[in-house]
């Protein structure tokens, strides 16, 4: 039990929270970068290999496309259905192979990434499916290659929902990052377990909850702002117009 009235309690709390927040941000940001780098192409391929899609017949083989699509679907569903705590433990040999150890903050990035990639790939898939097929047709009529269709049409037009999908992904990475305390992964979750739970410090617990809440809120707000900035669809234009008309009204 920690004594909140002792003179080194508050400086200690501050230090522990700083270190925990730093570790969480480190884990989450590295995991996010890898997730986007892998999940974005994976999502594109997931949509593309569907029958009638852009890559429905890679290397001229329709069967290859179908097999690739089924396989990816399976992997994504598997990754999304295994509970994180089990996945984390099951991945220990793989983590050791990649990082050299399965203990510590860097090692925790591996299971966090593995759980986030299928999640984000689904978000990308959904966002890209929302893109009007007429846009693809227009690009094809201009002589676009498949790569140009992906890079100039599908991804830019799906950017707004993908950013929102990314913020949902980050939230769940933060969520899962609190669990890696189990493999001594550090971070805010570790602080909550070691101080809040094992040593009965309610103040630590509350502080961790507040910090995580603020993190998620800030991220969500930032993502919403970014998504609006990249969306030039009716809603934004309309609100811009109503704002303009409201400025005009007093003059009338």
């Amino acid at each position: 039990m920690i004594d909140p009235s002792s003179s080194d309690f508050w400086p200690g709390l501050f230090h522990v929270l700083m270190v925990g927040t730093g570790q969480t941000l480190y884990m989450v940001s590295v995991a996010l970068v890898i997730t986007v780098l892998v999940g974005l192409p994976l999502g594109v391929v997931l949509v593309g290999t569907e029958p009638g899609g852009l890559f429905s017949a890679p290397f001229g083989s329709r069967r290859f496309g179908v097999v690739a699509n089924r396989l990816l679907e399976f992997v994504v569903n598997l990754g999304r259905s295994v509970p994180f705590i089990i996945l984390m433990v099951a991945l220990i040999p793989f983590t050791r192979l990649v990082v050299g150890t399965f203990i510590g903050t860097t090692a925790s990035i591996v299971p966090l990434t593995v759980v986030a990639i299928p999640f984000f790939a689904r978000m990308v898939e959904i966002a890209i499916k929302e893109v009007d097929s007429g846009l693809v047709e227009a690009a094809e009529s201009l002589g676009a290659t498949r790569w140009q269709i992906v890079s100039k049409v599908l991804v830019p037009e799906a950017l707004s929902p993908m950013i929102l999908g990314m913020s949902t992904t980050v939230t769940s990475i933060i969520n899962f990052s609190a669990m890696v305390g189990v493999v001594a992964g550090g971070g805010l979750g570790d602080v909550a377990v070691r101080f809040g739970y094992q040593r009965y410090s309610t103040i630590h617990m509350v502080a961790v909850i507040i910090i995580i809440f603020l993190l998620v809120m800030a991220l969500q707000g930032f993502a919403n702002w970014l998504a609006r900035r990249f969306s030039h669809q009716g809603r934004v234009a309309r609100s811009a117009r109503t704002a303009a008309s409201m400025r005009v009204q007093p003059a009338l």
Binding site: L135, A138, A139, L142, K152, H232
Partner: peptide, 26 residues
């Protein structure tokens, strides 16, 4: 062969000029 569509099929994320430039980028 240029093509014009019933529902315009313009990229919402690009300006008018950006849309027109698409073919030249390609």
């Amino acid at each position: 062969v240029g093509m014009v569509f019933q529902h315009f099929n313009l990229l919402e994320g690009r300006t008018v000029q950006g849309n027109v430039e698409l073919g030249l980028e390609i």
